[in-house]
Write a protein that binds this DNA or RNA. Sequence first.
DNA 1: CGCCATATGTGTGTTTGCGCACCGATGACT
DNA 2: AGTCATCGGTGCGCAAACACACATATGGCG
Lengths: 239, 239
Amino acid sequence: MPNAPALRARPANRLLAALPPKEYQRLLPELEDVTLAFAQVIYEPGDTIRHAYFPNDSIVSLLAAEDYHASLEVGMIGNEGMAGISVFMGVSTSRTLALVQGAGAAVRMKSAVLRRESDHVGSFHRLLHRYTHSLWTQMSLCSACNRFHTLNARLARWLLMTQDRIGTDEFRLTQEFMSNMLGVRREGVNKVAGELQRGKLISYSRGHMAILNRAGLERISCECYRIIKADSDLFLGKG
Amino acid sequence: MPNAPALRARPANRLLAALPPKEYQRLLPELEDVTLAFAQVIYEPGDTIRHAYFPNDSIVSLLAAEDYHASLEVGMIGNEGMAGISVFMGVSTSRTLALVQGAGAAVRMKSAVLRRESDHVGSFHRLLHRYTHSLWTQMSLCSACNRFHTLNARLARWLLMTQDRIGTDEFRLTQEFMSNMLGVRREGVNKVAGELQRGKLISYSRGHMAILNRAGLERISCECYRIIKADSDLFLGKG
DNA sequence: CGCCATATGTGTGTTTGCGCACCGATGACT
DNA sequence: AGTCATCGGTGCGCAAACACACATATGGCG
């Protein structure tokens, strides 16, 4: 068992951490440590989903990709969740593009194992149901957010959500990348990111982003950030 | 059992119809016939979900409502599905606004019964999982559709989806209502609906809409319509 | 050190949809 | 038959974001 995190008493992934210790111990042999590289593609539309990924300090983004020049993030998955939830719902081919938005560590589990372990209504099953609902809520909120809120507010929200999941003040990120997530052009991101930088809320250069003033970003961001975070924390709290 | 559709051999709702006959017979005593009125509110954010609704020829829309003047449809539920899927996922309060977009018949089931009947991994459970995934796909596609496609194409898509679920060429529908679904102003709907009417694709007057040329609408609509329909039909076929 | 792919900054003109204001038409109800 | 709330049509100014076209900066690599 070369890559199994056998010595780790408590998982870094909060979804796994919400499992009863006994359940987690049972899953442990099936978990494999992996490192996710920036911009790595996890699933493409039509792909067979071979593994479910539980990020530790990495981030996986789910994208609805219209074509090469029009994509939009529909879900952000960090240590509060899992990528590959379709498998749990009985569908083993991906409908969305899943790619690594923040490099870092994750553990993964074979789809067959996920199916086996969630094929009866127990702690794991219930947890995945709750997580599905949480991601669902995130999706519908972001849908409205993308429609109604200014790019300013949305960028701030997105940066906050990213920082929450990656856990550090600095991370790799280009304007081009952000534009793909927010479904706008790079020039648009340039404009509002420039404003944030001049306001000393963030600082960036050649793909290196730093959050300087979280409180300031929270003020600029729309309510969506708070609501999504509250819902996410709630489901984990109630396990 | 006053309102039970006891004599109905096969259900009009395709989700229920996809159940093995034996399972359906077992659920039958728990199903209650209801008539849903146009614009009736099924759930509001924060509401406890008391029933799950299986439309026959009615339509329930799930809305993300920013405030009174900014709402957006995030899911459309007709005879292929069920409103109240949150209950299945273990959450009994609604996060979205669910309202009747097309008046008609439905059957409903108490939330407690839904929980009981889906609390083990059987046909019903698996079917609801697949439906959850289908609605999920619809949500993410529409999210991108709302972002990238013209109002023209989106209105055509929405009308087609509505007609598929309501089953007739004519139905009640105002521009104001459409604007709430599509997340745009009434004036915007007026503009493109006027074009469709002049092109003899639809005809409408004072809340009465008629589809005159389905094929024409399909040409104008974006691909999203076809993709969503294919995915929806697929999951029911594979039941 | 110099090159170059990558990342960022900026300008111009156009389109889409918003906000507001208002008019006209009509169906339902008294 | 008259009233009135509802529904539909339209014009105008504005803001956001688009498409396209460049200019500039810089880290990494030979």
